[in-house]
Amino acid sequence: MKRFVHINAKTVEEAVSCLNRYGGKGSLIAGGTDLLGKMKDMILPNYPEALINLKTIPGLDYIDEKDGLFTIGALTRLQDIADHPALKDRCYALAEAARRTASPHLREMGTLAGNICQDIRCWYYRNENNRFPCLRKGGGRCYAIDGDNRYHSIFGGSVKKGCYAVHPSDTAPALIALNAKIITSKRSIKAEDFFKVGVKTTTILDSDEIVTGIQIRKPENGSKSAFLKFAIRKSIDFPLVNAAACISSAGGKVTAARICLNAVYVKPYRAVKAEDAIIGKAITEENAAAAGEAAVVEADPLPHNAYMVQIAKTLVIRTLLACRE
């Protein structure tokens, strides 16, 4: 890796001040498992001049439950989320998403905030030595469109209608399904509004804004959540498709539904049409199948990834069925 300045931030304010000082050339590091891989592969045209370490900020590694509200510190390791009894009980989709992320070692290192702030997954974007200066790096074209796009977006592109790289987070769809709020140094953002595709960005965070925690309103009784991941291998793998759902039911009928897919689009893809299809109905095989169809009604796959549509549909159906009472 190239030389950089390393700063151990001791407070969030200090980290913010460092971000400002390096004006876009500073990068935050928490678990580091995504950032260091990118730096080792030299995938970007420019390197961070400074890494600002958040792990030295005390009080950001916790899981708290108070007045029906879970608050999870930004630095909480994924493994701790996966193992947390109350989260497993009440926010199953999140605990399960954390459990299925990457590998045991990476879950001991990776943080929840890092997982949702991680960069996109695309083998052109991530090719060594900036071999493909693509749209997301400010370049002129997306190489996946004419190339091998078997793992790319099935719901169209973004950034000048071009980039088809997917967002690979496992926890992001769970947080969106659970209607979580992302707490930053500046504000509180609904999880589904958090992700934004732009040149060099994957979130709506300002350049000097830091995620400090995540809040989840404890789902009411009568609601259930689920998370399913489909990957080529059973561990050490990013999702080929994943899906999370949180369903509230009363009297055998769905009263509220939030369903989110990921790794199928440039950002987490909330399957609103699937939600509409299931609300007011019982979760039966038939109704779930209809919701699955609705989830992918807008799919517009590339030449090599039409199969992902079928998998996405299946995962939506299965997460819904897993939420049956």
Binding site: Y124, R131, K234
Partner: peptide
Amino acid sequence: ISEEVIYDPVTGVMLNGNLLDYKIATILD
């Protein structure tokens, strides 16, 4: 079931020369 070295058909550049994208079996497979 998973091992394949993949090249970009347009540029001839290898796309998955690492152990995340070239998938050898884990203990669970």
